[in-house]
């Protein structure tokens, strides 16, 4: 009897026994996914570790193998969500794109992500603020990152005189607040308009209103500008 070709005689990859590390990583992912759901649904403060392990369908021991506690779990969930968003944004802004166009593209990706993943958005933009000092510090660091990105616009912008040096901090804070309010009220339908307003409020002080408007129109005419169709509210 002919032997099976070598590549078929191997056990299928999926059936191979997973290593301990792989199993651990898988369990960690499972817990994080469950925690994000629970934090968003119940709010961070009222959530207990018990709520999380129940939702994840694992034991308490499994939870503490990966996390020091509820607050650590929030920090890790936050880091994961932010890393994912950062990756998506980087992918949407090709090298060599002009700064104003890159800003419009990044903003569009961010808004689309928020609409597509409202649960994660809620954890990373709203619940993180209720997570205490360490969570607040991480949230602050992400905002610092955004402030640094905006500050580049200051050096490129043609407007003279430049806006006051507190402008970027104020803008990022304002955007965060705006998004928090929208998420809290579940108002995420008119993203196209929100995108336009946000882009305008950022670009205007750097480039003047005429140039800002033109940049936004150019972006809207391009291929990168497609927001998901408005979903009928249930």
């Amino acid at each position: 009897m002919a032997r099976l070709p070598a590549h078929l005689s191997k056990a299928p990859v999926g059936r191979e026994r997973m290593s301990k590390q792989e199993l651990g990583a898988l369990q960690r992912e499972k817990i994080l996914a469950a925690a994000i759901q629970v934090f968003a649904k119940r709010g961070y403060q009222p959530t207990t570790v018990e709520n999380i392990v129940n939702a994840a369908g694992i034991g308490v021991g499994g939870f503490y193998a990966h996390f020091d506690g509820k607050d650590d779990c929030l920090l890790q969930a936050y880091a994961q969500i932010v890393a994912e968003a950062r990756e998506r944004i980087a992918a949407a802004v090709p090298v060599g794109m002009s700064w104003p166009q890159g800003l419009c593209a990044a903003l569009a990706v961010l808004l689309r992500l928020i609409a597509a993943e409202p649960t994660k958005a809620r954890v990373a933009l709203v619940e993180v603020q209720t997570g205490g000092k360490a969570a607040m510090r991480c949230f602050g660091e992400t905002q610092e990152e955004a402030i640094a990105l905006l500050t580049e616009g200051r050096t490129l912008g043609a407007a003279d005189p430049k806006p006051p040096e507190t402008f970027e901090g104020a803008t990022v804070s304002g955007l965060v607040w705006l998004l928090q309010q929208r998420i809290n009220r579940g108002e995420l339908e008119d993203l196209e308009k929100l995108h336009e307003e946000m882009a305008e409020m950022i670009l205007n002080p750097y480039f003047g209103s005429k140039r800002a408007k033109a940049e936004i129109e150019t972006f809207q005419a391009g291929a990168a500008f497609e927001f998901p169709a408005t979903q009928p509210s249930v």
């Binding site: 901090g169 804070s173 304002g174 955007l175 965060v176 607040w177 705006l178 946000m198």
Partner: peptide, 15 residues
């Protein structure tokens, strides 16, 4: 912009 007032308030409170 419709959200100009919220944006300004948010800047202050968040900061």
């Amino acid at each position: 912009p419709d959200s100009a007032d919220l944006m300004a308030t948010g800047s202050i409170l968040q900061l």
